[in-house]
Design a protein around this nucleic acid. Sequence first.
DNA 1: AAATTCAATATGTAGCTACATAATAATGTC
DNA 2: GACATTATTATGTAGCTACATATTGAATTT
Lengths: 233, 233
Amino acid sequence: MTIDSRLSWTQVRDEIRARILNRTYAPGDKLPRDEDLAQELGCARTTVHRAMQDLSLAGLVERKRKGGTHVKADPVTRATFDIPITRREVEQRGSKYGYQLIQRSVELTPPAIMARFGLPKAIKMMRVKALHLSDNRPFILEDRWIDIRSNPEILEVDLTTQSANEWLVLHKPYSRLDLRFYAMNATGEIAKHLDTPDTSAVLVIERTTWIGAEPITTVQAVTTPGYQLSSVR
Amino acid sequence: MTIDSRLSWTQVRDEIRARILNRTYAPGDKLPRDEDLAQELGCARTTVHRAMQDLSLAGLVERKRKGGTHVKADPVTRATFDIPITRREVEQRGSKYGYQLIQRSVELTPPAIMARFGLPKAIKMMRVKALHLSDNRPFILEDRWIDIRSNPEILEVDLTTQSANEWLVLHKPYSRLDLRFYAMNATGEIAKHLDTPDTSAVLVIERTTWIGAEPITTVQAVTTPGYQLSSVR
DNA sequence: AAATTCAATATGTAGCTACATAATAATGTC
DNA sequence: GACATTATTATGTAGCTACATATTGAATTT
């Protein structure tokens, strides 16, 4: 047991956090040097340092060499979100997962897709439209573009049984990710596929990945009405 | 310069990440022990440990004592989002920030609000409706409930000039946060305030905070059509 | 054979030292 | 006084040691 023997860095972190919360150190204030805090709390500087690193990562404080540590004057809310593979998401809710391929083709990228990747000119990419089902009801409709140059193997994959979502996530790691959320009115074809009234509001998750500077894939995942994204922890 | 003298933990992290990306270590695989990796890469175990911690936090690997380190079999996309104070957000886009108080009252919490906080029965809370403007155009409409028990001072604050958003963020730290995003159709009063056509889809950010077990505030922030949230870094 | 105990092992944590690095303050020069 | 140089200082990083802790698997007992 580590009853009162030594302070762990998480305890130190929590203590400093508590002081920030109760305004012992107010927004904009300068915190004591790591070494002084270490002495006051009865631990090593390394321990305070580790605690500070965590607080810095959480966006609570800002550190600068020689400048010292300051409580962020302008606090931002920082939250983490997990986006699992769709199949997993459905199954974790205890529902039956289903999948339907709608379309599979090779097309020239329209300007909107070029913009997502930052491409200077149109190229041919594979386009896959598919519907993910939860208990046989529409769940997420995805419209995906895949760069054939970095993923030639995708041309051989049977996408009627396995979703491109899953294949890519298991076989094509990425080094850069852009995620964005926005709302749109489901109309026309989208409303039809999602089996939802025309113009109903739906949340859209847009996900674009690269490996190095090479585009891999970009998806527009249109969720069904009522879908919520919530932060972890 | 640290040309080839010693490996930094970030270099080690990137090396291991690269190996995961190029399938040297595939999803589900067991990675070598920290100590072996350290020896192979020519650094101390501490350095490998720090690198691994980071990869674990990023959700790329899973570590267990004695069990060793494994590449996550079921990769999730983990992304971080920053939600700044609305005023800051507007100003950072180079626009002029404006603010209008719409309503301020003390009401009994309806079931939806009780549910957000997990309250067993209705209590009186302060309710504030306000509109944030960007270049004199509607930007975000917020409908906020504030627990007067944990925030009695709010009753004295002049909310016609300062937004509750800002006052709370500067004076009322939280220890627990729930953030969620969803889409809705702007109708009636909301559409009117946002000056947008009826039923247009808007992104909603719902943010609920507690200090310890005590509720602080919950907001439903309705953005204007076209608003996007994007991940950091 | 099942259950319990115990040793082995990989990661987790804390402390120490030593040095690197960036930013500021102090100093010196023209 | 303006500018360049140097010293100081707080954080950042790496290495080492020592021990804690969880978990697995083997050994032992019932």
